[in-house]
Amino acid sequence: MITKSDWQDVHDELIAENRQRLGEPPTDDEILAYMGGELSPEEEARVRALLVCYPELARVVAAPFPADDPKPGEPGYLSPSDVNRSWQSFRKRIGRDEPQGPRWLQFRPMWGAFAAAVLAVVVGALLWNARSGVRQPVNAVAWEEQELILGGARGAGDEFVPLTVRGEKVALKLPLIRQPEFAGYRLELLDVSGPEPRLVYDTTTVRMTEDVAVLAIVDWKDLTPGGRYQFVLYGVDGGREQQLGTYSFRVPAS
């Protein structure tokens, strides 16, 4: 009987013989040109023969680049916050973790002294103003609250509930079905209007209400009229995270 071992021995001999005859493995440029169809027929035949002798390199040609991003739940999915963390570590890696902004805005000792002097003048002016008893207008903050629907497998669905509240800030209540048992929580707000979700904010400062819901405060200026958004709530315990629910809503167009 022809066995696997027979095939392996014959194949090993062929590989050794072919490598000796054909020479070094193809270079990166040759492989890329082969993949791009940029080689002459003779060169293409040579690279093809080499790829059969170097299967680890052939695998690069065999496995195509993914045409799109993995969806949540698929292998290799990264959430916007994962990408955000990666971006932060990338900045450290390339040594770009210094303060942002134009060079003239970056901190210098003399700027510190200047800022202290300006601060002293402003505080003095405020004190003078307060003593003179002049009342300043206070910006009114509209504060309305709306309860969203728990979506996903355990909830009512993933429909986008229209926002009925409006104000500079709105409070959105995100109910949970079971009493949560996590040391902490993390909440993401994603803008899902486009083909790819965009992270609006990501916070671990999550306030749980007495009736087992999370209260999320959203600045109206972070929302786009007509936009679709989704909260994703995670329970955090040590290094483990578990998605607890999603809450979808849309902003009225006008």
């Binding site: 994962d82 990408v83 955000n84 971006w87």
Partner: peptide
């Protein structure tokens, strides 16, 4: 560009290879 494509490049290494 990083934010747009990082997940796909990661998937290329992790899932395809």
């Amino acid at each position: 560009m990083y934010r747009k494509y990082f997940a796909r490049v990661y998937r290329f290494f992790y899932f395809e290879h």
